[in-house]
Design a protein around this nucleic acid. Structure first.
Lengths: 194, 194
DNA sequence: CTTGTTTCATAACGCCGTTACGAAACAAGG
DNA sequence: CCTTGTTTCGTAACGGCGTTATGAAACAAG
């Protein structure tokens, strides 16, 4: 009676390979055209690996989304010294550099095409640098005294809304999104000023 | 040699039936779970009708989205007398009353899960009441003098971003979205004031 | 080398969007 | 009235998807 048998190949290293490969395919072909067979082939394994390591396509995409939120949070933390303005600029920069991922992170959850909602903690963690900046500005007396979460979510919604419309190509076709973005950041600064 | 043969059943009336049925299914089950077979069965026809009347599932969903934008524009026009604040309130009201449709209209285009992008004119028409209100406020001297389209798209992005985050259930779990929404509307008014 | 046990790749299943085919439904001509 | 011709659409087949079941592969122990 043997205890262990066939050597394990569905290891955590393969798990991260699958994550990377999936993120790459999402970025190249868009979320809709990513199939488990392609993912498995690109990672030199079979579709079974996705099921033994993630549970299914939904969970795989959800994990990719979570990774996206972590990357996004890192970029926000790196931009934190720049204050609210720096965070806003970094937000759009990251989104434009990871368009397909951003679409999946927010559009996927919105459209509910796949139940690939991020773990709530991932989204909350990504918002923390913004909340800190809001609290700092309030402490410095430059920002209106209002519940931190409310101000933060409103500012987040402003930048997310602009990036979202820009990526969805809504709004006027010849829109100068960069100009609109900076103008909106200024308006936010004035609107929430103490 | 007969000219006309079998009576035509794939008429424009059936076309609108399909639109209504699809919108209903989208609203009940979400866009992901809508299948052509279900749509055809609910409209008492076959899937062929979708192809002869729309061209395929993508165009059917795109038509539903266009109808959504028309309905949304009507609601905005009805709220136009209320000025910018009235438009903002009506925006969220409509979105909450047509959640699945709103998700499809904006999330679908964002995630690119289906190429169901609205016709650019439909989205542009829906923004016209807002642009008019911006122009009026500028003429009245209560709003900052800046390109109308830029101000309008920024304001739209603010309300869209908040509604989008609320529907995607992002942000703090016990958030008071109504309060955040009105606070954001006030901040917008201050930020873009003349 | 055989046995036993675990692990994963292959193949099958059901459902989807899409398309090809043939029956259905009528106008005209004998 | 029946046959012919023409147009139209419902049915059935096809390829591809996510998912699942099955059996071969790969080793430890006896």
């Amino acid at each position: 009676m043997g205890f262990m048998a066939r050597p394990v190949v569905h290891t955590d290293s393969l798990r991260q390979d699958l994550l990377a490969v999936t993120a790459e395919l999402v970025d190249r072909d868009g979320p809709a055209r990513v199939t488990l067979r392609d993912v498995a082939a690109a990672a030199r394994t079979s579709t079974t690996a996705v099921y033994s390591l993630f549970g299914g396509k939904s969970q795989l995409l959800a994990a990719v989304v979570d990774g996206g939120f972590q990357s996004f949070r890192d970029s926000q933390m790196a931009a934190a010294p720049g204050g609210l303005h720096g965070l806003g600029v970094a937000y759009r920069t990251w989104a434009l550099q990871h368009q397909a991922l951003y679409r999946l992170m927010f559009g996927g959850a919105l459209a509910a095409y796949v139940d690939c909602q991020p773990s709530p903690e991932a989204a909350a963690d990504a918002m923390e640098p913004l909340k800190d900046a809001v609290a700092s500005a309030q402490a410095a007396g430059t920002l209106l005294q209002a519940p931190v979460e409310m101000v933060a979510v409103a500012i987040w919604a402003q930048v997310h809304g602009l990036v979202s419309l820009e990526l969805a190509q809504m709004g006027p076709p010849e829109a100068d999104w960069a100009a609109a973005y900076t103008a909106a950041l200024d308006a936010v600064a004035r609107g929430w000023a103490a």
